[in-house]
């Protein structure tokens, strides 16, 4: 299912399919936010902002306004 990181719930995972390079700071790409990599939502602050993620083994927090530009394929566990 195609969605964005901003729509993940706590504990859910996805594979990054696209990042729009205009909205995403280069720094985030360099930290591993690239197509093909796995992302997991670890924790959210109140109002779901910022979001605490594990991207490809790197743990980091970004704001929701950035998370919405990371397109993912959600992994659905049976």
């Amino acid at each position: 299912m195609q969605t964005t990181v901003a729509h993940l719930k706590r504990g859910e995972q996805g594979i990054i399919t696209d990042v729009s390079s205009i909205h995403i700071p280069l720094k985030l790409l360099e930290m591993g936010c690239l197509p093909g990599n796995m992302v997991e939502l670890i924790q959210v602050a109140p109002f779901e902002d910022p979001m605490y993620l594990n991207i490809n083994g790197t743990h980091l927090a970004i704001r929701k306004e950035t998370a919405i530009h990371i397109i993912i394929e959600k992994i659905i566990h049976e």
């Binding site: 720094k27 930290m31 980091l60 927090a61 970004i62």
Partner: peptide, 11 residues
């Protein structure tokens, strides 16, 4: 000043 927010959560 860049306002984007990317904070590493170290171990």
């Amino acid at each position: 000043s860049k306002s984007f927010f990317v904070v590493e959560m170290p171990n």
